[in-house]
Design a protein around this nucleic acid. Structure first.
Length: 268
DNA sequence: TTCCAGGCGTATC
DNA sequence: GATACGCATGGA
């Protein structure tokens, strides 16, 4: 990893990284694109840690970030120790995946907080991205930060009415109660065999196969998780009627990210 | 106005 | 175990 300190900032030289493709692609919902003098800038959070990050055409600028925070928090969050060039090379043995990797080669998997991710994807069901972001933003504004499961466990669907989350409010309450009571151990699920992990998550009301898969992939870094929505279903029907190629073994979820963006762009 | 959004729970067969 | 339907909300 190549970076330098520049005043209060960290400047990172990083291939295989694009802010729009990584941050603004439906895996995270607490980042906002802001207009600045840079080519591209986002502000957002990991847990309660704020960050403004820019790309100036040459390097990624982590604003007001010390070396310690950069190495202990953001390197992990942006998965900077993983060689995505190597991953793309491997996936590119397959023709369709090769095109997908070329189309959006700057995608990285964010290592998000599991509880925030669980809430986010419960909210995501039958919903669109601007509204998902709106609901999460009202939730954080209400508490002054992203609430813990314990904080939310005392809520009811009615008391969460200010979220305007609709029928999803009761699912959030159930997730909070089960997590706060310890019936569901979010810290242990990442280490479970994948089917056991899926089953545990799906004990929460409002968590079905799709949401469970997203939480495993985006909130627990289980790269073999493979969320299937209408778009990925289309990819499977059109390109992989026999199933995914062997090159995706163990990193199905990363392949999914490349394919998702590729097919959505093709259809547009 | 009507449709739809990175689904899920429930009823019904 | 497969399939149909309703669900809250707000933007297009």
């Amino acid at each position: 990893m190549e970076y330098i300190r520049k005043q209060n900032n960290i400047c990172l030289y990083q291939p295989d990284f694009d802010l729009d493709e990584t941050i603004d692609c439906g895996q995270a919902f607490r980042w906002e694109k802001v207009p600045t003098e840079y080519k591209c800038t986002y502000t957002g959070f990991f847990l309660d840690r704020p960050l403004t990050i820019s790309y100036d055409g040459e390097c990624f600028i982590f604003h007001d970030t010390g070396e310690e925070d950069f190495l202990s928090v953001w390197t992990d969050y942006f998965d900077l120790d993983t060689d995505y060039g190597e991953i793309k090379k491997r996936l590119s043995a397959d023709e369709t995946l090769k095109k997908a990797c070329e189309f959006a080669g700057g995608i990285r998997l964010l290592r998000q907080d599991s509880w925030e991710c669980l809430c986010s994807f419960i909210i995501s069901q039958n919903n669109n991205i601007p509204r998902i972001k709106g609901i999460i933003s009202r939730l954080c504004e209400h508490y002054g930060h992203f609430p813990t499961a314990v904080e939310m466990a005392g809520e009811t669907p009615e008391s969460l009415g200010f979220l305007r989350a609709g029928f999803r409010a009761k699912y959030l309450v159930d997730a909070a109660q089960k997590t706060a009571e310890g019936v569901l151990e979010l810290k242990k699920i990442p280490y479970m065999p994948i089917d056991e992990a899926r089953k545990s998550l799906m004990t929460i009301k409002g968590v079905g196969p799709k949401v469970a898969e997203c939480v495993l992939l985006f909130g627990m870094y289980r790269t073999e998780a493979f969320p299937v929505d209408v778009w990925i279903k289309r990819v499977m029907e059109n390109y992989y009627p026999q199933g995914l190629p062997k090159v995706t073994k163990g990193i199905e979820g990363i392949a999914q990210q490349y394919l998702f963006h590729y097919i959505r762009n093709l259809e547009k």
